[in-house]
């Protein structure tokens, strides 16, 4: 299996993002990600990692350039097309973003919302098959016993795994994880990262994740992308990211280096 022969699943072409206040979020980003990769984005706070993440599913609009998901431009997509493209991209957030007053099952089911007509959703008519799907996602993160618990009864790590289950229920091709472990303690951190790794390996879902920890990036990632002040300053397999390279991503020494 050679990666080069596959079609890219995410492709950034000369992507720029300038915020309304003039802050540069992303600058001339070219990035190609292939199916099944586990790509870790590292960089300082405010370097543009979150912007990069959110431009993939267009929670943030980009200023210029083009982003393609599986060969279709999400930048050009409008209305329903955008919604149906988003539903193939699951997302996990630093603060879990669960409805705390709702049950775990309800939260996980919302991953299916994009697959129904609006009127059915306003009436809350989820099919039995989708409820089963939600339950299976919970089994995958080993929280099947919490299915009817209220989300706020769960610990932080459990809540994050519920949000992983929600993303899985979307049956996505890509999972974006924006600092998923930033509010967790070290033990739960590994639990959550293991779940993501398992999903990546067993289901072949492409994972694009932001991390603060270089150790975790090296432990779990297959590829590292370094972002500094909106520029991509490093892109290569984990093995090629030596201490010097990492230091450069975090410091600002101008050593643009693109690995294999």
């Amino acid at each position: 299996m050679t990666v080069a022969q596959k079609e890219p699943i995410i492709q950034f072409t000369q992507v720029n993002k300038v915020y309304e206040n003039g802050t540069v979020g992303l600058k001339d980003i070219d990035l190609t990600i292939y199916p099944g990769e586990f790509v870790v984005v590292i960089g300082l706070s405010g370097a543009g990692k979150s912007t990069l993440m959110r431009s993939v599913n267009r929670l943030h609009d980009i200023t210029s350039g083009d982003i393609q998901i599986g060969g279709r431009s999400i930048t050009q997509a409008k209305g329903k097309e955008l919604l149906s493209m988003r539903r193939e991209i699951g997302m996990i957030f630093q603060n879990f973003n669960l409805v705390k007053r709702a049950t775990v099952l309800r939260n996980v089911l919302t991953g299916r919302v994009g697959y129904y007509p609006t009127w059915k959703m306003l009436l809350g008519m989820f099919s039995a098959a989708d409820k089963q799907k939600a339950y299976e996602s919970l089994q995958r993160v080993e929280l099947a016993d919490k299915v009817y618990a209220r989300a706020d009864e769960l610990s932080g790590g459990q809540q994050q795994r519920v949000s992983i289950a929600r993303a899985l229920t979307q049956e996505p091709r890509i999972i974006l994880a924006d600092e998923p472990i930033a509010s967790l303690d070290p033990q739960t951190t590994h639990r959550v990262m293991d779940d993501l790794k398992k999903i990546n390996e067993e289901l072949g879902i492409t994972v694009l994740i932001n991390l603060h920890s270089v150790e975790l990036a090296k432990e779990y990632g297959s590829r590292i992308v370094g972002i500094r002040a909106g520029h991509k300053v490093f892109d290569g397999p984990v093995a090629s990211a030596d201490d010097e390279t990492i230091a450069a991503i975090y410091s600002g020494a101008d050593t643009e280096k693109v690995g294999a």
Partner: peptide
């Protein structure tokens, strides 16, 4: 909490569905 709104939007929900579920 605006978090669930963002989560629903990311999952491909439209404005009605966001109000209903987030």
């Amino acid at each position: 909490d605006e978090g669930p709104i963002e989560a629903l939007r990311a999952a491909g929900a439209n404005q009605w569905e966001i109000v209903r579920y987030a």
